[in-house]
């Protein structure tokens, strides 16, 4: 079994990684780096609670062996989201719209919303539903979450 020696950029900071190559990204984040904002619920890529952003794409961190991420990989987790302007807008909109209940899906939901708005700053309602379809929520019925993403999008600075 090979042990990795890698350097990633996690939430903007350069972080050395030492782990078995097959360790799930989720476990590296939670157990090795203490970034426990990312949640595990199903462990098989169905629920989206462990969603993080790797090199600008939203991914489920439970299905990625750490070894597949080379040196320099940029990872953004819920802990890094609030350092971004879009992230803060999303978090505020979630609170204002009442989009949060038990909260367990919310870090993943916020990260997916971020990934969506970075790619598509003016998403239609179907685009929001599609962008969040990989994140299961059992409390809210999604309605207020969708409203929150719309609200955050409306507050994004206009591009010329």
């Amino acid at each position: 079994m090979s042990t990795l020696k890698r350097t990633w950029k996690v939430n903007g900071q350069t972080v050395p990684i030492r782990a078995p190559a097959g360790r799930r990204l989720l476990d590296v984040l939670r157990d090795d780096l203490g970034l426990v904002g990312t949640k595990e619920s199903c462990g098989e890529g169905e629920c989206g609670a462990c969603t993080v952003i790797v090199d600008n794409e939203p991914v489920v961190s439970c299905l990625i062996p750490a070894g597949q991420l080379p040196d320099g990989t940029a990872i953004l987790t819920i802990e890094g989201i609030e350092k971004t302007r879009i992230g803060r807008l999303i978090q505020r909109a979630f609170l204002e719209c009442g989009a949060v209940q038990c909260g367990f899906c919310i870090p993943g939901m916020v990260v997916s919303s971020y990934a969506l708005l970075v790619k598509n700053p003016r998403p239609s309602t179907p685009a929001i539903r599609e962008g969040l379809a990989g994140n299961l929520c059992r409390c809210t019925g999604y309605t207020k979450i969708i409203q929150a993403v719309k609200l955050a999008a409306a507050r994004l600075p206009k591009r010329k």
Binding site: R30, E79, F94, L95, G103, V110
Partner: peptide, 21 residues
């Protein structure tokens, strides 16, 4: 009134600590 959740901040920031955290 629709007062904002008192436990919302930690939940949107991922700082609420559930058992496995």
């Amino acid at each position: 009134q629709g007062m904002m959740r008192v436990d919302g901040d930690g939940k949107v920031r991922g700082t609420t600590r559930y058992l496995n955290d």
